[in-house]
Nucleic acid binder design. Structure first.
Ligand SMILES: [Zn+2]
Length: 117
DNA sequence: CGGCTTTGACCTCAT
DNA sequence: GATGAGGTCAAAGCC
């Protein structure tokens, strides 16, 4: 194999930083990731997000199976002190609000592709 | 320069 | 009293 060591052609690119952890799901707010841990209790991966606003105590956590990173569960904790600086989608925005109303003002669970229960 | 992401270490609570 | 799990903060690196 002559070990050519392709210098320029970065074909194999280690740029494959994708698929590791779910990207920041913009749901209408800005979040800052501050931790990630594997929960043994449910055998799931958990990502911890905090609202960009220091005044806001709203937190968000992403939970997904290491075997199925496609299905992500979003758990919102706390409430915001400021309106959404990021209009997401009239349709989804209403849906989100409706869901929150159905569950709690600070404790909702969203399913990724298809919501289970 | 600022801001965000990632990992490790540290803290706390329950058993 | 110690351990494990869960949760949070800080520092470094990168753009
Ligand atoms: Zn907020």
């Amino acid at each position: 194999m002559a070990a050519t060591t392709p210098p320029a052609t970065n074909l194999e690119g280690e740029d494959a930083r994708e698929g590791r952890s779910p990207m920041m799901p913009e749901d209408g707010y800005e979040w800052k990731k501050y931790g990630q841990k594997f929960i043994q209790n449910i055998r799931k991966n958990r990502s911890y997000f905090k609202c960009r606003n220091r005044r806001c105590k709203a937190k968000k956590r992403l939970e997904w199976l290491p075997s199925d990173p496609s299905s992500i569960r979003v758990i919102y904790q706390g409430a915001h002190d400021h309106p959404s600086p990021r209009p997401q989608s009239n349709l989804e925005q209403e849906a989100s609000a409706r869901r929150a109303n159905r569950y709690n003002l600070a404790n909702q669970v969203l399913g990724s592709p298809s919501d289970p229960s």
